[in-house]
Design a protein around this nucleic acid. Structure first.
Length: 438
DNA sequence: TCTGGGGTCCTAGGACCC
DNA sequence: TCTGGGGTCCTAGGACCC
Protein backbone atom coordinates (compact mmCIF):
# COMPACT_ATOMS: atom_id res chain seq x y z
CA UNK A 1 0.00 0.00 0.00
CA UNK A 2 1.05 3.55 -0.74
CA UNK A 3 0.44 6.65 1.36
CA UNK A 4 0.38 10.25 0.26
CA UNK A 5 1.08 12.90 2.86
CA UNK A 6 0.08 16.45 2.03
CA UNK A 7 0.52 19.51 4.25
CA UNK A 8 -2.68 21.45 4.80
CA UNK A 9 -2.64 24.96 3.28
CA UNK A 10 1.13 24.69 3.49
CA UNK A 11 2.38 28.24 2.90
CA UNK A 12 -0.30 29.75 5.11
CA UNK A 13 0.44 27.17 7.81
CA UNK A 14 4.14 28.10 7.67
CA UNK A 15 3.38 31.80 8.07
CA UNK A 16 1.15 31.06 11.03
CA UNK A 17 3.96 29.29 12.88
CA UNK A 18 5.75 32.55 13.55
CA UNK A 19 2.86 34.96 13.55
CA UNK A 20 0.02 33.79 15.81
CA UNK A 21 -2.07 36.79 14.81
CA UNK A 22 -2.78 34.91 11.59
CA UNK A 23 -4.50 32.03 13.38
CA UNK A 24 -8.28 31.85 12.92
CA UNK A 25 -8.16 34.67 10.43
CA UNK A 26 -8.50 34.56 6.65
CA UNK A 27 -5.00 34.54 5.14
CA UNK A 28 -3.70 34.17 1.59
CA UNK A 29 -0.16 33.84 0.21
CA UNK A 30 0.70 35.26 -3.20
CA UNK A 31 2.83 33.97 -6.06
CA UNK A 32 6.06 35.69 -7.06
CA UNK A 33 5.59 39.31 -7.98
CA UNK A 34 2.45 39.33 -5.82
CA UNK A 35 0.46 38.23 -8.86
CA UNK A 36 -1.79 35.30 -7.97
CA UNK A 37 -3.17 33.60 -4.90
CA UNK A 38 -1.39 30.28 -4.36
CA UNK A 39 -2.23 29.33 -0.79
CA UNK A 40 -5.36 29.99 1.24
CA UNK A 41 -6.40 29.38 4.81
CA UNK A 42 -9.69 27.55 5.32
CA UNK A 43 -11.32 30.86 6.26
CA UNK A 44 -10.20 32.35 2.93
CA UNK A 45 -11.39 29.29 1.02
CA UNK A 46 -14.82 29.64 2.60
CA UNK A 47 -15.02 33.20 1.28
CA UNK A 48 -14.90 31.79 -2.24
CA UNK A 49 -11.33 32.79 -3.12
CA UNK A 50 -10.05 30.34 -5.72
CA UNK A 51 -6.64 28.77 -6.15
CA UNK A 52 -4.50 30.58 -8.69
CA UNK A 53 -6.76 33.60 -8.90
CA UNK A 54 -5.07 36.91 -9.83
CA UNK A 55 -5.13 39.28 -6.87
CA UNK A 56 -6.62 42.23 -8.71
CA UNK A 57 -9.71 40.20 -9.58
CA UNK A 58 -10.57 39.50 -5.95
CA UNK A 59 -9.44 42.81 -4.44
CA UNK A 60 -12.98 43.54 -3.28
CA UNK A 61 -13.31 40.21 -1.44
CA UNK A 62 -9.91 40.66 0.18
CA UNK A 63 -10.77 44.14 1.40
CA UNK A 64 -14.31 43.36 2.51
CA UNK A 65 -13.29 40.18 4.32
CA UNK A 66 -10.22 41.80 5.92
CA UNK A 67 -8.10 39.04 4.48
CA UNK A 68 -4.43 39.12 5.47
CA UNK A 69 -2.32 39.09 2.31
CA UNK A 70 1.30 37.89 2.30
CA UNK A 71 4.01 37.62 -0.37
CA UNK A 72 5.57 34.20 -0.63
CA UNK A 73 8.73 33.54 1.38
CA UNK A 74 10.32 30.39 0.03
CA UNK A 75 13.19 30.32 2.47
CA UNK A 76 10.74 29.62 5.29
CA UNK A 77 8.69 27.12 3.32
CA UNK A 78 11.75 25.24 2.11
CA UNK A 79 13.20 25.03 5.58
CA UNK A 80 9.98 23.78 7.19
CA UNK A 81 9.51 21.33 4.33
CA UNK A 82 12.97 19.84 4.99
CA UNK A 83 12.13 19.32 8.63
CA UNK A 84 8.91 17.48 7.77
CA UNK A 85 10.59 15.27 5.16
CA UNK A 86 13.33 14.40 7.63
CA UNK A 87 10.76 13.24 10.18
CA UNK A 88 9.29 10.93 7.53
CA UNK A 89 12.67 9.61 6.46
CA UNK A 90 13.58 8.90 10.08
CA UNK A 91 10.84 6.34 10.49
CA UNK A 92 10.28 5.02 6.96
CA UNK A 93 12.58 3.46 4.40
CA UNK A 94 10.85 4.35 1.12
CA UNK A 95 9.98 8.02 0.98
CA UNK A 96 9.55 9.99 -2.22
CA UNK A 97 9.57 13.76 -1.80
CA UNK A 98 7.10 14.67 -4.46
CA UNK A 99 6.86 18.43 -3.95
CA UNK A 100 7.57 21.05 -1.32
CA UNK A 101 4.51 19.95 0.65
CA UNK A 102 3.87 16.35 -0.46
CA UNK A 103 5.48 12.96 -0.04
CA UNK A 104 4.59 9.44 -1.11
CA UNK A 105 5.75 6.56 1.03
CA UNK A 106 5.46 2.81 1.03
CA UNK A 107 3.63 1.01 3.84
CA UNK A 108 4.82 -2.43 2.85
CA UNK A 109 5.10 -4.67 5.88
CA UNK A 110 3.23 -2.29 8.19
CA UNK A 111 0.44 -4.05 10.04
CA UNK A 112 -1.72 -1.23 11.25
CA UNK A 113 -1.26 1.33 8.50
CA UNK A 114 -3.71 3.90 9.78
CA UNK A 115 -2.21 3.80 13.23
CA UNK A 116 1.27 4.34 11.81
CA UNK A 117 0.08 7.30 9.74
CA UNK A 118 -1.72 8.88 12.66
CA UNK A 119 1.46 8.58 14.67
CA UNK A 120 3.42 10.32 11.88
CA UNK A 121 0.88 13.09 11.46
CA UNK A 122 0.85 13.75 15.21
CA UNK A 123 4.62 13.80 15.35
CA UNK A 124 4.86 16.28 12.47
CA UNK A 125 2.29 18.53 14.11
CA UNK A 126 4.08 18.38 17.43
CA UNK A 127 7.59 18.86 16.08
CA UNK A 128 6.94 21.43 13.35
CA UNK A 129 3.46 22.82 13.98
CA UNK A 130 2.22 21.95 10.48
CA UNK A 131 -1.08 20.03 10.13
CA UNK A 132 -1.04 17.29 7.48
CA UNK A 133 -3.45 14.86 5.79
CA UNK A 134 -2.62 11.31 4.70
CA UNK A 135 -4.43 9.11 2.19
CA UNK A 136 -3.66 5.38 1.88
CA UNK A 137 -4.47 3.16 -1.10
CA UNK A 138 -3.13 0.63 -3.58
CA UNK A 139 -1.70 3.08 -6.12
CA UNK A 140 -0.41 6.62 -6.17
CA UNK A 141 -3.45 7.83 -8.09
CA UNK A 142 -5.82 6.28 -5.55
CA UNK A 143 -3.74 7.57 -2.62
CA UNK A 144 -4.05 11.04 -4.09
CA UNK A 145 -7.81 10.63 -4.22
CA UNK A 146 -7.96 9.30 -0.66
CA UNK A 147 -5.96 12.29 0.49
CA UNK A 148 -8.33 14.64 -1.25
CA UNK A 149 -11.27 12.93 0.46
CA UNK A 150 -9.70 13.60 3.87
CA UNK A 151 -9.57 17.28 3.06
CA UNK A 152 -13.06 17.45 1.58
CA UNK A 153 -15.05 15.29 3.94
CA UNK A 154 -18.19 17.29 3.31
CA UNK A 155 -18.39 16.14 -0.30
CA UNK A 156 -18.40 12.52 0.86
CA UNK A 157 -21.01 12.66 3.61
CA UNK A 158 -21.98 9.00 3.33
CA UNK A 159 -18.52 7.85 4.37
CA UNK A 160 -17.67 7.07 7.95
CA UNK A 161 -14.46 8.77 9.01
CA UNK A 162 -12.70 7.12 11.91
CA UNK A 163 -9.89 9.63 12.00
CA UNK A 164 -9.58 13.34 11.44
CA UNK A 165 -6.64 13.44 9.08
CA UNK A 166 -5.93 9.88 7.88
CA UNK A 167 -7.96 7.68 5.53
CA UNK A 168 -7.40 4.21 4.17
CA UNK A 169 -10.05 3.03 1.76
CA UNK A 170 -10.62 -0.60 2.64
CA UNK A 171 -14.03 -1.61 1.37
CA UNK A 172 -14.78 -1.91 -2.34
CA UNK A 173 -18.12 -0.18 -2.07
CA UNK A 174 -16.50 2.74 -0.23
CA UNK A 175 -14.04 3.11 -3.08
CA UNK A 176 -16.86 2.99 -5.61
CA UNK A 177 -18.74 5.66 -3.68
CA UNK A 178 -15.65 7.87 -3.56
CA UNK A 179 -14.86 7.47 -7.24
CA UNK A 180 -18.48 8.12 -8.20
CA UNK A 181 -18.34 11.38 -6.27
CA UNK A 182 -15.01 12.59 -7.60
CA UNK A 183 -15.07 14.65 -10.78
CA UNK A 184 -12.76 13.48 -13.49
CA UNK A 185 -10.82 16.77 -13.42
CA UNK A 186 -9.94 16.14 -9.79
CA UNK A 187 -8.08 12.97 -10.70
CA UNK A 188 -4.26 13.24 -10.62
CA UNK A 189 -3.02 13.51 -14.20
CA UNK A 190 -6.26 14.89 -15.63
CA UNK A 191 -5.99 18.60 -16.33
CA UNK A 192 -8.15 21.12 -18.07
CA UNK A 193 -7.76 19.84 -21.62
CA UNK A 194 -8.17 16.16 -20.85
CA UNK A 195 -11.23 16.75 -18.70
CA UNK A 196 -12.92 18.56 -21.59
CA UNK A 197 -12.17 15.62 -23.87
CA UNK A 198 -13.38 13.10 -21.29
CA UNK A 199 -16.57 15.02 -20.59
CA UNK A 200 -17.32 15.11 -24.30
CA UNK A 201 -17.03 11.35 -24.28
CA UNK A 202 -19.40 11.02 -21.36
CA UNK A 203 -16.74 10.25 -18.81
CA UNK A 204 -17.56 12.61 -15.99
CA UNK A 205 -16.35 11.04 -12.77
CA UNK A 206 -13.47 8.87 -11.61
CA UNK A 207 -15.58 5.70 -11.58
CA UNK A 208 -16.53 6.21 -15.24
CA UNK A 209 -12.87 6.80 -16.09
CA UNK A 210 -11.94 3.62 -14.26
CA UNK A 211 -14.46 1.60 -16.26
CA UNK A 212 -13.90 3.09 -19.69
CA UNK A 213 -12.17 1.36 -22.60
CA UNK A 214 -8.46 1.77 -21.90
CA UNK A 215 -7.51 1.07 -25.51
CA UNK A 216 -9.67 3.95 -26.66
CA UNK A 217 -7.89 6.19 -24.14
CA UNK A 218 -4.50 4.94 -25.24
CA UNK A 219 -5.28 5.53 -28.88
CA UNK A 220 -6.77 8.99 -28.40
CA UNK A 221 -4.72 10.46 -25.56
CA UNK A 222 -1.65 8.33 -25.09
CA UNK A 223 0.01 6.16 -22.56
CA UNK A 224 -0.01 8.62 -19.65
CA UNK A 225 -3.78 8.71 -19.34
CA UNK A 226 -3.98 4.97 -19.92
CA UNK A 227 -1.78 4.53 -16.86
CA UNK A 228 -4.15 6.70 -14.88
CA UNK A 229 -7.05 4.44 -15.86
CA UNK A 230 -5.09 1.37 -14.76
CA UNK A 231 -4.09 2.99 -11.48
CA UNK A 232 -7.75 3.71 -10.74
CA UNK A 233 -8.31 -0.05 -11.14
CA UNK A 234 -5.61 -0.71 -8.58
CA UNK A 235 -2.85 -1.64 -11.03
CA UNK A 236 0.43 0.03 -10.06
CA UNK A 237 2.01 1.94 -12.95
CA UNK A 238 3.82 4.67 -10.99
CA UNK A 239 6.29 3.53 -8.39
CA UNK A 240 7.81 5.26 -5.42
CA UNK A 241 11.05 6.94 -6.46
CA UNK A 242 13.36 7.23 -3.51
CA UNK A 243 16.52 8.43 -5.22
CA UNK A 244 16.81 11.99 -6.42
CA UNK A 245 16.10 12.16 -10.15
CA UNK A 246 18.96 13.35 -12.34
CA UNK A 247 18.43 16.94 -13.36
CA UNK A 248 17.54 17.43 -17.00
CA UNK A 249 17.26 21.18 -17.09
CA UNK A 250 17.73 24.21 -14.88
CA UNK A 251 15.64 27.27 -15.54
CA UNK A 252 15.80 30.66 -13.84
CA UNK A 253 13.28 33.25 -14.83
CA UNK A 254 11.11 35.91 -13.21
CA UNK A 255 8.40 38.28 -14.22
CA UNK A 256 9.63 41.84 -13.87
CA UNK A 257 8.25 44.09 -11.16
CA UNK A 258 7.14 46.38 -13.98
CA UNK A 259 7.14 46.05 -17.74
CA UNK A 260 10.50 46.73 -19.40
CA UNK A 261 11.10 48.46 -22.67
CA UNK A 262 14.84 48.95 -22.86
CA UNK A 263 17.35 46.33 -23.85
CA UNK A 264 19.85 47.27 -21.15
CA UNK A 265 17.26 46.76 -18.38
CA UNK A 266 16.38 43.30 -19.63
CA UNK A 267 20.04 42.48 -20.01
CA UNK A 268 20.75 43.45 -16.42
CA UNK A 269 18.00 41.10 -15.25
CA UNK A 270 19.29 38.27 -17.41
CA UNK A 271 22.82 38.57 -16.05
CA UNK A 272 21.51 37.91 -12.54
CA UNK A 273 19.45 34.92 -13.68
CA UNK A 274 22.43 33.47 -15.52
CA UNK A 275 24.46 33.66 -12.33
CA UNK A 276 21.73 31.92 -10.34
CA UNK A 277 21.34 29.20 -12.95
CA UNK A 278 25.06 28.50 -13.22
CA UNK A 279 25.64 28.42 -9.49
CA UNK A 280 22.73 25.99 -9.18
CA UNK A 281 24.28 23.85 -11.88
CA UNK A 282 27.62 23.80 -10.09
CA UNK A 283 25.89 22.71 -6.88
CA UNK A 284 24.86 19.57 -8.74
CA UNK A 285 28.39 19.25 -10.14
CA UNK A 286 27.17 19.41 -13.70
CA UNK A 287 28.40 20.79 -17.01
CA UNK A 288 25.89 21.95 -19.62
CA UNK A 289 26.06 21.89 -23.37
CA UNK A 290 22.82 23.62 -24.31
CA UNK A 291 21.87 27.19 -23.43
CA UNK A 292 18.45 28.69 -24.14
CA UNK A 293 17.29 32.25 -23.57
CA UNK A 294 13.64 33.27 -23.82
CA UNK A 295 11.98 36.64 -23.72
CA UNK A 296 8.30 37.51 -23.73
CA UNK A 297 5.65 40.11 -23.24
CA UNK A 298 2.67 39.37 -21.05
CA UNK A 299 0.11 37.27 -22.88
CA UNK A 300 -2.47 39.88 -21.86
CA UNK A 301 -0.56 42.67 -23.61
CA UNK A 302 -2.02 44.15 -26.81
CA UNK A 303 1.16 43.59 -28.78
CA UNK A 304 2.26 40.07 -27.88
CA UNK A 305 5.76 38.81 -28.63
CA UNK A 306 7.54 35.71 -27.42
CA UNK A 307 10.72 34.18 -28.68
CA UNK A 308 13.56 31.93 -27.65
CA UNK A 309 16.92 30.91 -29.06
CA UNK A 310 19.12 27.97 -28.24
CA UNK A 311 22.85 27.50 -28.61
CA UNK A 312 24.61 24.15 -28.48
CA UNK A 313 28.25 24.09 -27.49
CA UNK A 314 30.72 21.61 -28.88
CA UNK A 315 31.96 20.87 -25.39
CA UNK A 316 29.96 21.06 -22.17
CA UNK A 317 30.98 23.92 -19.91
CA UNK A 318 30.83 25.11 -16.32
CA UNK A 319 32.25 28.56 -17.02
CA UNK A 320 29.88 31.40 -16.22
CA UNK A 321 31.83 33.79 -18.44
CA UNK A 322 31.25 31.64 -21.49
CA UNK A 323 27.62 30.96 -20.61
CA UNK A 324 26.94 34.65 -20.11
CA UNK A 325 28.62 35.58 -23.37
CA UNK A 326 26.37 33.15 -25.23
CA UNK A 327 23.26 34.15 -23.30
CA UNK A 328 23.98 37.79 -24.07
CA UNK A 329 24.28 37.01 -27.79
CA UNK A 330 21.06 35.00 -27.72
CA UNK A 331 19.21 37.83 -26.03
CA UNK A 332 20.47 40.33 -28.59
CA UNK A 333 19.17 37.97 -31.26
CA UNK A 334 15.61 37.80 -29.98
CA UNK A 335 15.20 41.31 -28.59
CA UNK A 336 13.00 43.59 -30.66
CA UNK A 337 12.29 47.24 -30.08
CA UNK A 338 8.87 48.61 -29.23
CA UNK A 339 7.51 45.83 -27.05
CA UNK A 340 6.75 46.01 -23.34
CA UNK A 341 8.42 42.93 -21.96
CA UNK A 342 7.31 41.11 -18.82
CA UNK A 343 9.75 38.25 -18.50
CA UNK A 344 13.16 36.92 -19.46
CA UNK A 345 14.74 33.60 -18.58
CA UNK A 346 17.60 31.18 -19.11
CA UNK A 347 17.46 27.41 -19.42
CA UNK A 348 20.55 25.25 -19.12
CA UNK A 349 20.27 21.65 -20.31
CA UNK A 350 22.01 18.60 -21.76
CA UNK A 351 24.06 18.01 -18.64
CA UNK A 352 27.23 16.02 -18.24
CA UNK A 353 29.15 14.75 -15.32
CA UNK A 354 32.80 15.82 -15.23
CA UNK A 355 33.87 12.24 -15.95
CA UNK A 356 31.66 11.85 -19.03
CA UNK A 357 32.59 14.86 -21.06
CA UNK A 358 33.24 14.31 -24.73
CA UNK A 359 36.19 16.54 -25.60
CA UNK A 360 36.49 18.34 -28.86
CA UNK A 361 38.82 16.54 -31.26
CA UNK A 362 40.19 19.80 -32.59
CA UNK A 363 40.60 21.93 -29.51
CA UNK A 364 41.73 19.39 -26.99
CA UNK A 365 42.85 20.25 -23.49
CA UNK A 366 42.48 18.31 -20.29
CA UNK A 367 39.33 19.13 -18.36
CA UNK A 368 40.10 17.69 -14.97
CA UNK A 369 41.54 20.73 -13.22
CA UNK A 370 41.45 23.51 -15.72
CA UNK A 371 41.64 27.16 -14.79
CA UNK A 372 37.90 27.54 -15.37
CA UNK A 373 36.99 24.92 -12.80
CA UNK A 374 39.34 26.38 -10.23
CA UNK A 375 38.01 29.86 -10.83
CA UNK A 376 34.38 28.78 -10.51
CA UNK A 377 35.15 26.92 -7.31
CA UNK A 378 36.84 29.96 -5.89
CA UNK A 379 33.88 32.18 -6.73
CA UNK A 380 31.48 29.72 -5.11
CA UNK A 381 33.62 29.41 -2.00
CA UNK A 382 33.85 33.17 -1.54
CA UNK A 383 30.13 33.61 -2.08
CA UNK A 384 29.29 30.80 0.31
CA UNK A 385 31.41 32.40 2.96
CA UNK A 386 30.68 36.09 2.51
CA UNK A 387 27.21 36.08 0.99
CA UNK A 388 25.70 35.42 -2.41
CA UNK A 389 26.68 37.99 -5.01
CA UNK A 390 29.90 39.18 -3.36
CA UNK A 391 31.69 38.06 -6.50
CA UNK A 392 29.66 38.33 -9.67
CA UNK A 393 29.64 39.42 -13.27
CA UNK A 394 29.54 43.14 -13.56
CA UNK A 395 26.49 44.98 -14.76
CA UNK A 396 26.04 48.67 -14.20
CA UNK A 397 22.40 48.56 -13.25
CA UNK A 398 22.57 45.99 -10.51
CA UNK A 399 24.81 47.63 -7.95
CA UNK A 400 22.14 47.81 -5.33
CA UNK A 401 20.47 44.51 -5.91
CA UNK A 402 22.89 42.35 -4.02
CA UNK A 403 23.13 44.59 -1.00
CA UNK A 404 19.40 45.05 -0.62
CA UNK A 405 19.04 42.65 2.26
CA UNK A 406 20.76 45.10 4.57
CA UNK A 407 20.08 48.51 3.15
CA UNK A 408 16.47 48.48 2.10
CA UNK A 409 16.02 52.08 1.09
CA UNK A 410 18.38 52.15 -1.83
CA UNK A 411 16.90 52.18 -5.27
CA UNK A 412 16.50 48.63 -6.55
CA UNK A 413 16.87 47.77 -10.23
CA UNK A 414 13.85 48.32 -12.42
CA UNK A 415 13.22 44.62 -13.05
CA UNK A 416 13.11 43.45 -9.46
CA UNK A 417 10.04 41.49 -8.31
CA UNK A 418 7.32 42.94 -6.19
CA UNK A 419 7.19 41.43 -2.73
CA UNK A 420 5.26 44.02 -0.85
CA UNK A 421 3.98 41.82 1.95
CA UNK A 422 6.92 39.57 2.72
CA UNK A 423 7.39 38.14 6.18
CA UNK A 424 10.88 37.89 7.76
CA UNK A 425 13.03 34.81 7.11
CA UNK A 426 12.49 33.56 10.63
CA UNK A 427 14.58 30.42 10.37
CA UNK A 428 17.22 31.22 7.76
CA UNK A 429 18.55 34.72 8.40
CA UNK A 430 20.32 35.67 11.60
CA UNK A 431 18.82 39.14 11.94
CA UNK A 432 15.29 37.79 11.39
CA UNK A 433 15.26 35.19 14.15
CA UNK A 434 12.27 35.96 16.36
CA UNK A 435 12.96 37.49 19.77
CA UNK A 436 10.98 36.22 22.72
CA UNK A 437 10.42 38.31 25.80
CA UNK A 438 9.94 36.31 28.98
C1' DT B 1 -2.29 49.24 -12.89
C1' DC B 2 -2.50 44.30 -11.71
C1' DT B 3 -2.32 37.58 -14.29
C1' DG B 4 4.04 32.73 -10.90
C1' DG B 5 8.07 29.68 -11.45
C1' DG B 6 10.17 25.41 -12.35
C1' DG B 7 9.87 21.28 -13.95
C1' DT B 8 8.77 16.35 -16.55
C1' DC B 9 7.04 13.34 -20.01
C1' DC B 10 5.03 12.09 -24.42
C1' DT B 11 3.96 12.44 -29.36
C1' DA B 12 4.16 13.64 -34.14
C1' DG B 13 6.74 14.72 -37.82
C1' DG B 14 10.89 15.58 -40.35
C1' DA B 15 15.48 14.37 -41.62
C1' DC B 16 18.46 11.07 -42.13
C1' DC B 17 20.80 6.26 -42.26
C1' DC B 18 21.58 1.56 -44.70
C1' DT C 1 0.16 0.84 -63.81
C1' DC C 2 3.86 -0.58 -60.64
C1' DT C 3 8.89 2.96 -56.36
C1' DG C 4 10.90 -1.07 -49.48
C1' DG C 5 11.60 -1.85 -44.79
C1' DG C 6 13.39 -0.83 -40.62
C1' DG C 7 15.33 2.16 -37.89
C1' DT C 8 17.44 6.46 -35.07
C1' DC C 9 17.73 11.08 -33.69
C1' DC C 10 16.10 15.63 -33.09
C1' DT C 11 12.72 19.27 -32.33
C1' DA C 12 8.52 21.65 -31.35
C1' DG C 13 4.56 21.62 -29.11
C1' DG C 14 1.26 20.05 -25.91
C1' DA C 15 -0.16 18.15 -21.78
C1' DC C 16 0.44 17.63 -16.97
C1' DC C 17 2.19 18.46 -11.96
C1' DC C 18 2.93 21.44 -7.57
Amino acid sequence: MIALLDCNNFYVSCERLFNPKLINRPVVVLSNNDGCIISRSNEAKRMGIKMGEPVFKVKHILRKGKVIVLSSNYSIYGDISNRIMNILKDSLSDVEIYSIDEAFFSLRGVNDRQKKCIYLADKILKWTGIPVSIGIAKTKTLAKIANRVVKKKKEYSRLKFNYKNVLEVKKDNDLEYILNNTNVQDVWGVGKKLSIFLNQNNIKNAQELKQCDENFIREKKGVVLQRTVLELRGVKCNYIETSLPIKKSICVSRSFGRKLYYYRDIRSALIVFVQKATSKMRKYNLFCRVITVFLKTSKYEKEVYSNSKTYTLIEPTIDIRLIWKIADDLLRNIFKDSFLYSKVGIILSDFYDKKNIQKSLIDYKSISETKEIKLMKTIDNINDRFGYGKIRLSSDNNQNFFSNSIVRNRKSPSWQMKTKYCSPCYTTRWCDIPKVKV
